[in-house]
Amino acid sequence: MHSYQAEIISRYFLRLPAGPDSPMRFNSLEDSFGHTPLIGLPNLSPAPNVRLWIKMEDRNPTGSIKDRAALWMINAAERDGLLKPGATILEPTSGNTGISLAMIAKQRGYKMICVMPENTSVERSQLLRMWGAEIIYSDAAGGSNEAVRHAKEISVANPEWVMLYQYGNAANALAHYESTGPEILEDLPTVTHFVAGLGTTGTLMGTGRFLRERVPGVEIIAAEPRYGEVVYGLRNIDAGFIPELYDESVITRRFSVGSHDSVRRVRDLLDQEGIFAGLSTGAILHAALGIAKEVVKRGDSADIAFILCDAGWKYLSTGIYEGSIDDAEERLEGQLWA
């Protein structure tokens, strides 16, 4: 072998750990999660000293922030001996977590079954099947509540299946405590506010705890999507649901954002900053802008970091990126749009 061949092999083909010399080289797709860009929004920021920063979580392997939680939950379950070779994973999901789990499960030889509400966008089903997941649909009425209830029933009937259960799995929040939080603080040491969506609460709990331990006075703000009435169609109030991960003391404010404001903000992001985001990001931006306006009114300064959960690709079929906002709102009625 010529010396140059040996050099090519050692430089390009050997599975060497990525290190400081090659920070953008990874040994596999899942290793490339995280370290997503934090991008300033010069046009949407209301003042030179009140700045908005968006963390581009669509740059993760399957295109959403859920890759972090999925990786941490599967790794924890393997370490704890819950997931053995050939195992079947069961998970209630409205899309993104299922998609992330399905990708990792397929690479590692697990079977993936998702319980998903039927009122979700068609792209989510297509993506899940693309990565080899089987889908069991739950009723539209009751939204994710119904998916969780149904998945728990299936889990009882199939005790050999492993339900990672993102709503109560500590590894979900830990993913953000160990990755999202440190990344934000490293890129924005002057952070004063963190805004994220409230679903499983994992992003807010993990990132929130990390930032609160290190940044005195930091505000942790939750933006909760407010859906159409069918999603709140419980049989009685006692059938309500609060994720086991949720700890009210971690957050400082919590806002409910409807589809009209979310669509409006998604379009603002496109028009003013060129960023193509999914609908839950619109809800988060709406809350972030509300906070920014308050800061300006008080005459203070702020660096407000918020999450772009995913890009808009899997929402294209909803038609919300064109036409009137009222029409878009009507099309989203009854849909689990975030």
Partner: peptide, 11 residues
């Protein structure tokens, strides 16, 4: 004021 039951969010 808006009153809503607490339900599981999307994820």
């Amino acid at each position: 004021l808006t009153i809503l039951p607490a339900v599981a969010g999307g994820s």
